[in-house]
Design a protein around this nucleic acid. Structure first.
Lengths: 162, 162
DNA sequence: TCTATTTTTTATCATTTGTTAAATGATTTC
DNA sequence: GAAATCATTTAACAAATGATAAAAAATAGA
């Protein structure tokens, strides 16, 4: 089912059980959590990417993240409950769900390794290389937090790289 | 199928396609990759944990990690190929594989968030809290690299915390 | 266009972490 | 048990990052 939401819409809220998962047809989104005062963005998704509150999707528990739409978005919506029913009934869909989780896992593992292997400058360079459009569509404060540094530190890196 | 390996055994090698996945019945292991000269440990597994070269398991591609056994180990071995056959034939097993990937994904995502949210001191404190036995079974240089810092930096943190 | 607001950059200083080298502790091997 | 090897800590200095404040640039709205 296709749905539209405006820029700024909060699709998921932390500490809620989310009933749906989404796929992005058009637009861009971020997931973030709170650490004391400040938000920390740890995920971006754009066209073709899934939006899932993993804790809700996997074990029907409260999630730890907000998801905010950063542009006007067109999404496909799927009911988690319906998917779980289908997983039990249809082996093709069960294997689709398996593949889906596996591919997300590889993405997450790669990101983990990059956070451990590379310093902030290298991570910024890698982001520009692998996802240049992100820089054009998302404000730098979110990107800094995604890279695990402050915005001020990102500014310094950008000034040096020029 | 149950197999034993001695401490120090290299179970997986980077840039190879691994044909098996394992579960740890007894012992402890680490996964690491190389960055220029030095190894970086990014995963530990102990009793009950799976040992999987994700790239091999998911897409039959060369992995990016070595896995070394840090104690004499007893493992269960499963052939990846056989599992993929079963996934196509048996919906129960397909859903087991789905759950398996999903739970690993949540672990990975949590770790990612911790790396981004917490400084080295906090990550060390969290490790002590969540996995105190690791400190007793694994040498500090591996733990430092798992925490994303040098061993010297970990020593300083330990000296301060005392 | 002009103003108000938000975003990004710059500057300064404190803190953390990295690097190199050396000292101390612990473990293994003969 | 002494020598050799490996693991851990300490020291000194350099580099990177954080915190705070302020300036500059960009954006949004009237």
């Amino acid at each position: 089912m296709e749905i539209k939401f405006p820029k700024g819409h909060i699709l998921f809220e932390a500490d809620k059980i989310e009933k749906n998962i989404y796929f992005i047809k058009k637009g861009i989104a971020r997931a973030y959590s709170y650490s004391e005062e400040n938000q920390i963005t740890f995920w971006f998704g754009k066209e073709g990417d899934p939006i899932v509150s993993m804790k809700s999707y996997v074990s029907n528990e409260k999630g730890y993240e907000d998801v905010e739409l950063l542009e006007d978005c067109v999404l496909y919506e799927l009911k988690t409950e319906k998917m779980h029913t289908l997983y039990e009934q249809d082996i093709q869909i069960a294997n689709w769900g398996r593949k889906f989780a596996e591919l997300e896992l590889i993405k997450s593992e790669k990101r983990l390794i990059s956070l451990q292997f590379e310093n902030a400058t290298q991570r910024y360079a890698a982001l520009i290389k692998n996802n240049p459009s992100l820089l054009l569509r998302v404000q730098l404060s979110y990107i800094a937090s995604y890279l695990g540094i402050t915005q001020i530190s990102l500014s310094r890196i950008r000034a040096k790289v020029k």
